[in-house]
Amino acid sequence: MGTYILRRLLGMIPMLFAITVFVFLMMHAAPGNAIESMLNPRIKDMAALQAQLIHQNGLDKPLPVQYVDWLGNFIRGDWGYSFAQGVPVRQLVLPALGNTLILAALAEVFILLIGVPLGIWQARRPYSLFDTSTSIVNIILFSIPYYIIAIFLIYFLAIKLHVFPSQNAVGTGPQAGSIVDHLYHALLPALSIALASSAVYSRYTRGSMLDVSRRDFTRTARAKGLTEGVVFRKHVFRNGMIPIVTQLGFDIGSLAGGAVILEGLFAYQGMGYITLQAATQRDYNVIMATSLIIAIGVLLGNLIADILYAVVDPRIRYQ
């Protein structure tokens, strides 16, 4: 197992290289440059000043050299300076990363608490009234885009009932910044993601459980006189959860990036929100840092998915 993980980590290196090159080149393909957008075009000697600043920032070096410089700085933790916010990028990105991780973790918890049990209950009595009615609700929930669910949640829970905040990742007052405060602010966006996703998860779970409960080994377990509870716990549940666990791993990465719209909607200061902000202000250093981190997050998520797959399914042996 250890060697497998090590090999997979080494195998990630070419992909990481491709990602950094892509992010770097994309920012360089952008029309205009950061210096130009910073300077007031009416100042005297604009061209000379611009040339001087470009030289000072190393923007006149050959591209590969610039790339190596940028990558070296990035690895050392110098992620550049946010021109629009006036702070180093790291100071902006690290708290945002924390906020996004809280949001993603909370969303996963909701998905596991809503989607999986629902799927299991549906699979226990397939085509019963409970199964069909919840399946219809699932199709509808799945078809309502998550941002529209979010708008309705804001409307009912934040605006009408004043139970939850509709804005920001942390509140004001003495409680601000505590873990409870963080969770309180992440609750509505997390619920908006989870409602739609849990519809998908319950569908997966139901299908997987039904599939396993029709297998020969389940029939054997019943035939040798095990109680329904034991059959379910030891045979159906363990095998039925294998695809779900893998899916969960894949979602870890995509949740981080997929929450862009919701973070924008809730003004929740996570990775997505600062990327949006940077995109409107064309703050290239921030965009480079966030898209790189999100891409690495997705890559790690996929790795975790593969490892989880090997952990829960003893039939899989990675050599």
Partner: peptide
């Protein structure tokens, strides 16, 4: 394809739309 999957679809569009205005 693997490479493209590393960039969430919506995020990639937002970045491209913003950069190329």
């Amino acid at each position: 394809c693997d490479f493209m999957f590393n960039f969430p679809f919506i995020l990639l569009i937002i970045v491209i739309v913003a950069i190329f205005n």
